[in-house]
Structure formats: C-alpha cells, structure tokens
C-alpha cells in the first residue's frame, strides 16, 4: 500500500514539474528576451508583470478550433503532438533532483534511457511534417530529421565521456561521483552536449527546421489549438530536460558550495535555471544557422571535439585511476 502511495506521489510530483517548469521557462523567455531587446514583455495578464501570460495563452489555445487539413493523414496528424510531448515527460522521470531517493524513478542505464527517449520525440515532428500534406511541413520534417541525425552522435559521445569518467551510466551515479575538478576536465564535453542538445530541440540558433522566413513554421505549420500548444510545450519541456541533464551530467547535479545534501534540490534547480537562462540568451543573441552551416558545425566540429574529449577522459582515467 505504501509502495503504491509512494509511486503515485512520485508520478504526481514529476507530472506537476512537467506542467509547471516549462511554463516557468516560457515566461522567463518572454521577459528575458523582452528586456534583452529593450522591451518590457507581457505586462497585463495576471496583473503583476504579466505573470499569467502563458496561462492566458493556454486558455486561448484551448478555445481554438482543432483543424485537420483535408489532404492530411488524419490519424498520424492527430497522434504526432502526443509523440512529440510524451518522451520529455518520461525523461523528466529519471532526472535526479537530489542524492539518494530524490528521483522520479531511478534507472540503471539512465543516460541511455534519457538520450534514447529524447530521440523518440523527434518522431513526432517527423510524423507532423509528413502527415500535414503541406510542402513546408515536409521540408521542416526533413530538416528535423537531418538535424537529429547530425547532432545525436556528438550528444551521445559527450555523454559517453562523462559516463566513462564516472564509471557508470546511471544518472544518480554520475552526479554522485562528481568532483569539482571534473568541470575543467569535462568542459569540452559539456559544451558539445549542450550545443548538440540545443540543436536537437531546434532552439535558435539551430531552428532551421522551423525557420519562419523560409518554411513558415516547419512541421507545425498546419497545427492549431491544443495540438499546436502541445508542440510548443514539448519545446519548453525539452529545454527543462536538456538543462536538467546537463546539470546532472556535467555540473555535478546536487553538489553545491554549501548546504550539503539537504539543499541538493536547490542546487539542481539553480543550475538548471541558469542553463535555461543561457538557452534563452543564446536565442536572443545569435542569428539562425544556415542548413549547410548547421550540418558542418556538427560533423566537422562537434563530433571531433567530442571524440577528443573521450580520448582525454580515457587518458586521465588511466593515468589517475
């Protein structure tokens, strides 16, 4: 009975985080982006500095008509948002917040689970792109696929490096084995992982698959209402997941300068939030990469860097056992 209660509570907590954190990131993006552009951002909804803007957006999306184009493949079209969104919920389940038991569900091969399931999310974009019966959507889907294929490899290699360093592929284990000097040791891997993750999420400056000046909104062009909102939610949930993963893998998760394990959750959240800020910051700062630049960056720059990081990790691991 207590087991069932425990599981239910954990699931509820993860689900609540899944619903709240992406909205927090989205609202932060509204405000940070506005201020970086000398604006104020939303100021009306909710009264205080527009804090309820995304809630209002959600209500608006819920009221909209759910349109399926006449030429579309109906079932695939309707299924795609769920396929895009659910993987992030699953990944959020395994990201540890603190040491020991503070995790939705500890998984032995956590790194592999997280990366594998994140890769599945892209299927949603592909399905949407194909099923929309729209050439822009199809182009967006193609670009999504090309981007995923290019950037999953460096991401995986970077994660493999830190797994080698820790001698385990469990997320809790990796964060537990963290020492402060891992930061300079794994910094290249961290950057590669983070950049590749951004590209996999199609965040600017890697948002070629949804480049509005060329292909409207890529695979999501034909979507309206709640299904469209799901895609957007998937993007922001993706940011949370990516920042959480980077925190746990490369920034030491719950390790902080003071407070011990009791404040672990705080450090994890703080690092995640800082990374989310960086994600927004990068979006505001850099222009979109062209498709060929995008591919080149991955194959000629990130992959060699990740391989070099693996080599470095191996050497250090052998020299300092």
């Amino acid at each position: 009975m207590t087991d069932a209660l425990d599981v239910t509570l954990r699931l509820l907590a993860v689900f609540a985080a899944f619903l709240v954190l992406p909205l927090v990131v989205g609202q932060t993006e509204h405000k940070v982006m506005a201020h970086m552009q000398g604006r104020l951002g939303p100021m009306y909804a909710g009264g205080f500095h527009g804090w309820a803007q995304l809630v209002a957006d959600g209500v608006k999306f819920a009221q909209k008509e759910d349109v399926v184009p006449a030429g579309a493949d109906r079932r695939v079209f309707q299924l795609a948002p769920a396929v895009a969104l659910l993987p992030y919920l699953l990944v959020l389940l395994v990201i540890p917040l603190g040491p020991g038991d503070a995790v939705g569900q500890a998984i032995d091969a956590g790194v592999f689970f997280a990366l594998a399931v994140m890769g599945v999310g892209v299927l949603g974009s592909l399905m949407a792109g194909w099923a929309s019966a729209n050439k822009y959507s199809l182009l967006g889907g193609l670009r999504t696929a090309a981007q995923l294929l290019a950037y999953e490899l460096p991401m995986l290699l970077a994660a493999a490096s830190v797994a080698m360093a820790a001698g385990t592929v469990s997320l809790t284990g990796i964060a537990g084995a963290f020492e402060w000097w891992w930061l300079p040791w794994q910094i290249v891997g961290a950057v590669v992982f983070f950049v590749a993750g951004l590209a996999e999420l199609q965040r600017p400056p890697f948002d070629m698959p949804v480049a509005d000046s060329e292909i409207i909104f890529g695979a999501y062009t034909e979507y309206t209402g709640l299904r469209f909102a799901f895609f957007l939610l998937a993007e922001y949930a993706g940011i949370v997941v990516l920042c959480g993963l980077t925190t746990v893998l490369f920034l030491g998760g719950w390790h902080g300068p003071f407070g011990g394990d009791g404040l672990g959750w705080f450090w994890t959240l703080l690092k995640t939030a800082a990374l989310a800020f960086v994600v927004i910051w990068l979006r505001v700062t850099y222009p979109r990469l062209r498709e060929d630049q995008l591919q080149k960056l991955s194959w000629t720059f990130l992959v060699p860097l990740a391989l070099a990081q693996i080599a470095l990790t191996g050497v250090v691991k052998v020299v300092i056992p």
Binding site: V191, V195, Y286, L289, Q293, K296, L297, T300, F301, L302
Partner: peptide, 9 residues
C-alpha cells in the same frame, strides 16, 4: 564560448 570558426561570420 562555442564554435565560431565554422559557423558564424
């Protein structure tokens, strides 16, 4: 912080 060599101008 990240690769400029190949990507940006």
């Amino acid at each position: 912080m990240t690769p400029s060599a190949s990507a940006s101008a």
